[in-house]
Simulated assay, not measured.
Amino acid sequence: MNLFIRISQPCPCVEKLIINNRYGQNQKESYKLMNDKSNLSIAKYYNLIELHIDRAHDDYIDEFLCNTKTYFQNNILLDIDYEAITKSHT
C-alpha cells in the first residue's frame, strides 16, 4: 500500500497537504507496479484544495502526480518545483 493511500484513508477531509521530505524513499514501488491494473487501491482526496510538494524528493512527486491511482475531486493549487517535475518527466 503506498504512502498516499495510507494518508488519504484516515484523513478523507484533508484540504491542505504539505510534503516536506528531501530524502528519497527506501522502499519505493516501481512505476510499473504502481500503475498495475490488478492493484485497485486508489488514493482519493475529495476535499483537497492545496498540495505543496515544492520541498519533496522526486520520488514523492513521481508517486503522487504520476501514479494513475490518485483521484482529486476538485481543482487544486499545486506548489511544486518546476525543475523537479520537468527533470523527472522528460
Rank of each mutant, 00 (worst) to 15 (best):
Y31P: 01
P12C: 10
S41E: 15
P12M: 13
N21A: 13
I18E: 10
H52Y: 09
Y45C: 03
Q27A: 03
D62I: 02
A56P: 03
K32Y: 03
N20R: 14
S38R: 13
Y60P: 02
Y60A: 01
L17K: 04
D54R: 05
Y45R: 07
P12R: 12
D36H: 04
N20D: 15
I49W: 05
H57G: 01
N21E: 15
D59N: 12
N47A: 12
S41C: 09
Y31W: 07
T70P: 00
V14S: 10
H57S: 08
P12F: 08
K32G: 01
Q25H: 07
K37N: 14
Y60N: 02
T68Q: 15
Y60S: 02
D58Y: 02
N35H: 05
K69E: 03
L51R: 04
C13D: 13
N39I: 04
K69T: 03
E50R: 08
Y46A: 03
C66E: 12
I53C: 13
I19W: 01
I61C: 10
I53L: 15
Y31H: 09
C66S: 09
T68H: 09
L51F: 14
L51C: 12
K16E: 15
D36N: 12
I42G: 00
K16Y: 14
L65Q: 07
K37R: 13
K16Q: 12
K28F: 12
N26S: 11
D62N: 11
L51V: 13
N47E: 15
H52G: 01
A43L: 02
I18R: 13
Y45A: 06
N47P: 00
C66G: 06
D59Y: 09
N67V: 00
H57T: 03
H52D: 15
I42L: 03
L33E: 14
H57K: 08
S30Y: 08
A43G: 02
K69V: 02
E63A: 02
D36C: 05
E50L: 09
H52V: 06
R22W: 11
D59G: 04
L40T: 15
D54T: 02
Y60K: 03
E63D: 08
Q27E: 11
V14A: 14
E50D: 10
F64M: 12
C13W: 02
N20M: 07
I61W: 05
S30C: 10
V14Y: 04
S30R: 14
P12K: 10
D54K: 09
D62C: 07
N20H: 10
K44N: 01
Y46F: 08
D54Q: 11
S41Q: 10
L33C: 04
A56N: 06
Q25V: 00
M34Q: 13
N26V: 15
I61E: 04
R55K: 15
I53E: 07
G24R: 14
K16D: 15
Q25I: 14
S38F: 08
E50W: 06
H52E: 09
K16L: 07
M34G: 00
H57I: 02
S41M: 10
Q25N: 11
K69Q: 11
I42K: 09
I53D: 04
N47L: 08
D58K: 10
I49Q: 09
Y31D: 12
H57E: 04
Y45H: 03
L65E: 11
L48M: 10
N67M: 07
S38Q: 11
L48H: 03
R55A: 08
D36P: 01
K28H: 11
K44M: 01
A56Y: 07
I49L: 06
A56T: 06
S41I: 08
D54A: 06
Y31Q: 10
S41A: 11
D58P: 01
